[in-house]
């Protein structure tokens, strides 16, 4: 937890790392749209190729990316199985007892698997792996700022996330310290029934909450002393600025989407049901 900056940010100097976070949020969104535009073998092949290209230029080791897929492996298998068994079609490939597997089912399952994997890989590359949580928060604040007209507390929300991010390492450390202190008094968190273990957390949670409230209180005073008075009239040290490469990336993705639409219109290869 204390070793790498929390979150999954992977520090490197790739092209994608250097893009403006606001553009990356938009790119990630458009890329998701693209993955849903795919309907046939050729478009899915193009999608897979684009994902491979993204991985290559992101500078993130594929091994680490694969790790991020681990939590969704169950969902992935589940969707594949459902699609394989429940899609009916014309070309029966295999049948036994009540189970019938059609060619269409296999293709759909394959397509959906590709879509899910690309979705995860694409968004992790654009967002979590190449963008620090704080840059992401700032980008969201900036992108959502039109909502301020509707009196949505966009700045306050972003400030909340920033402070939460700032205090994660502090509170993690504090939790470890309190745990050690209670263990020194013979507390046992690892044995006994679930009920007993839940009770054993009280000596940790109470001091942790008390301390979190104390910290919040002191932080609020410190912020007031540094002239904080909400988002109104605030300027920024680091203003996000876009460069040609940001627009190029955006255009590439839009063009990619347009290409996928064309492939769909001319319908090459097997088309998804």
């Amino acid at each position: 937890m204390n070793n790498i900056s929390f979150g999954q940010y992977y520090p490197a100097n790739s092209l994608i790392h250097s893009l403006d976070a606001r553009f990356k949020v938009i790119c990630a969104f458009l890329y998701i749209v693209c993955s849903f535009l795919c309907k046939n073998i050729l478009s899915f092949a193009a999608l897979l190729a684009s994902a491979a290209l993204l991985v290559a230029i992101s500078g993130i080791p594929p091994k680490i990316l694969l790790k991020s897929l681990r939590p969704i492996i169950f969902i992935l298998l589940f969707t594949v199985v459902i699609n394989m068994f429940w899609t009916s079609g014309e070309n029966l490939v295999f049948s036994w007892w009540k189970i019938r597997i059609y060619y269409e089912g296999i293709m759909n399952a394959l397509f959906i698997a590709v879509r899910i994997v690309v979705l995860i890989v694409g968004t992790s590359i654009f967002l979590t792996y190449t963008t620090t949580p704080i840059a992401l928060t700032d980008a969201l604040e900036s992108l959502l700022s039109p909502l301020k007209v509707l009196r949505a507390p966009v700045h306050e929300f972003a400030m909340m996330i920033t402070i939460a991010l700032r205090f994660i390492p502090t509170l993690t450390e504090e939790t470890n310290r309190i745990m050690a202190a209670q263990k020194a008094r013979g507390a046992d968190f690892t044995t006994g029934s679930i009920f007993k273990r839940a009770r054993a957390l009280i000596p940790i949670l109470v001091p942790l909450f008390v301390s979190a409230f104390r910290r919040a209180d002191e932080l609020a005073t410190a912020m007031e002393c540094r002239c904080y008075h909400g988002g109104e009239g605030r300027t920024r040290l680091n203003i996000p600025h876009s460069r040609p490469r940001d627009y190029v990336m955006l255009l590439l993705i839009v063009a990619f989407g347009a290409g996928l639409i064309l492939i769909n219109i001319y319908g090459i290869g097997y088309t998804m049901k």
Binding site: E174, R177, I178, A180, A181, Q182, K183, A184, R185, G186, I202, P203, V206, P207, V210, S211
Partner: peptide
Amino acid sequence: VRFRVGLVMQYPEYQLF
């Protein structure tokens, strides 16, 4: 052993609950 060797950590008041 932890009962025989009692440890008072830094700022121990933060362990009161």
